[in-house]
Amino acid sequence: SWPVAAQTVPERTDPIVINDGELQLETVAPAPAHLEGALPELYSGWLFRDPGTQAMQTDDFENPGMIFVDQGVDDWNTPDGEAGKSCASCHEGIESMAGVRAVMPKVNAEGQLWSMEDYINDCRTNRMQAEALDWNGNRMKNLTAAISVQSRGMPMNVAIDGPARPFWEQGKEMYYTRYGQLQLACANCHEDHYGDWIRADHLSQGHTNGFPVYRLKQAALVSQHNRFRGCIRDTRAETFPMGSDEFRALELYVASRGNGLPVEGVSVRH
């Protein structure tokens, strides 16, 4: 019951049609120039999932991630911390975040590369006098999910030049490093072998435009850094911590490989 020959190009490249046509997300995009032919085309991770998993992402009532989006929106509107403010006190409706997910991570005014989680915690600690949220905690994942959905359909477009360049170079170096006792780089699986099966897993190009994703296996939202951690751990390597500078750099590089694919978050994966 496995394919005899791997298909490098997915058999079908239909768009993801959400809520009976309310929104249509393309699943193929031209590869950005910086990839220099390393990928002939970009394919959404959705194309590599089984039909049942795919279907869940086409209806917001069936998409289990949407419950967490609702919880994130509630948090957005709820005052917290000594300043007595909510996110909405300054940013108003969460729709104001449209476009933010498509350009994350990005370099802040101080020249540091920040993920969305960093911007959220900066607002919480410095503007709300509230405690920082755990990188991988439910409240943080709910907020990043709620903010991501506001950009659904917008093409990923992270900046890789100017102040972002050194971070991008660092992430690229990591992407091609063969970590761990199994000596496997991200590129071994997601560039050289997407479309192939690694035992029961159908390898995708490993894009991040669907994050945070709802993973059926974990029955929870999964952040980008948690996914990276899992992939590196599976090479029998010492991983990097979530929220580390290394993972921010990797996040930027991986995001740039997907520049042009629409923001899908919250996507559903198995």
């Binding site: 490093t177 063969r178 970590y179 761990g180 006792q181 000596q183 951690r229 590196i232 751990r233 599976d234 090479t235 029998r236 390597a237 010492e238 991983t239």
Partner: peptide, 11 residues
């Protein structure tokens, strides 16, 4: 190895 791990522990 580069960043050898302790099995699949991630450590």
């Amino acid at each position: 190895y580069i960043r050898p791990g302790d099995g699949f522990s991630g450590k």
